[in-house]
């Protein structure tokens, strides 16, 4: 499932005098199975971009092609689009509405033409993927769970249609460390199984660890696009675009100022650890 954006522009309130361009002539190609992190200061257009890719916002100008097909062209099967692209919004637990967990998660399969049993199979897979025991939770009300659990139920509701493209808008906001890392692992696993992942986040640490590629947006334009190591190499740029940098990188910079010499610029904890071990093995 490749994604191609051609000259995409988007403007809010375009018909009034105070319309603003959220995206300007954005060009982007994301290949099948990539894990892409999207970063940028608040208001730079990340969410707008993601919604345009998912077909939730029609672009002002330009085309969006998924697997080569223009999704905004008349005649494109929107039902298929909804199945292929899974979108996890911020605080997804706020979209829960059903009376039981099984019905909530099964909502995404409503118009798929599957029988009840077939749907329950998929629901079971999705819930187990998110760490639930299907039989124990299926008849419970989604509202009676804790915040973190509700979020996992909501994400299961997105995964149930087995999307090829998964877009997540800050999915770990407000989660504790353990929940955060377990969600990362689940998404990484889905990526390994072949899903293309677009992950909007402010968390440089996790993106360094899991993303193949990071795109940085500023004021509606893509200003950086490359593997994490490249993107976080230049500290002046990361400060300018307000994307921060990974903790490991910060530590390595601090150590370098005090005389430690590193061969490469480590960006994850594991790399830092390995580099430090090597450093000490060589005698410092």
């Amino acid at each position: 499932m490749s994604i191609e954006l051609n000259q995409i522009s988007f403007c809010y309130a375009s018909h009034t005098s105070y319309g603003e361009y959220a995206l300007r002539e954005v060009e982007l190609f994301i290949g099948d199975g990539e894990f892409v992190g999207i970063m940028g200061h608040t208001g730079c257009g990340k969410t707008t971009l993601a919604q345009i890719v998912a077909g939730l916002l029609p672009p002002f100008a330009g085309t969006v092609k998924i697997d080569g097909y223009d999704i905004n062209k008349k005649g494109y099967d929107r039902k298929l689009l909804r199945k292929k692209v899974g979108f996890v919004f911020q605080y997804p637990e706020h979209q829960l509405f059903e009376t039981t967990v099984e019905r909530e998660v099964a909502f995404g399969l409503k118009y798929g033409g599957l029988s009840w049993n077939e749907r329950m199979e998929r629901v079971k897979d999705a819930l187990e993927c998110m760490g639930f025991a299907f039989e124990r939770v299926r008849k419970e009300s989604p509202m009676s769970f804790s915040g973190g659990e509700k979020r996992r139920i909501a994400i299961a509701g997105v995964l149930v249609s087995d999307p090829d493209i998964l877009i997540l808008d800050e999915p770990t906001a407000g989660l504790d460390a353990k929940s955060r890392s377990s969600l990362h692992k689940i998404i990484a696993k889905l990526n390994q199984r072949g899903a293309t992942v677009l992950w909007i986040s402010h968390d440089a640490d996790s993106l360094c660890k899991y993303a193949d590629r990071i795109i940085v947006l500023e004021k509606g334009k893509i200003v950086m696009d490359g593997p994490p190591r490249e993107v976080f190499a230049d500290q002046t740029k990361t400060e300018q675009y307000q994307i921060g940098t990974s903790q490991a990188r910060v530590i390595s910079e601090m150590l370098q100022k005090r005389g430690f010499k590193f061969e490469r610029k480590p960006i994850t904890y594991q790399e830092l650890l390995d580099d430090l071990c090597n450093y000490f093995k060589k005698g410092g």
Binding site: Q51, R82, F89, H94, F107, G108, Y111, G157, S161
Partner: peptide, 19 residues
């Protein structure tokens, strides 16, 4: 804004508003 976000989230899951 919340209503808009919720509406889009449900559309993304397959809710039919448009057709």
């Amino acid at each position: 804004k919340e209503a808009d976000q919720i509406r889009k989230a449900q559309i993304a899951r397959g809710a039919k508003f448009e057709s």
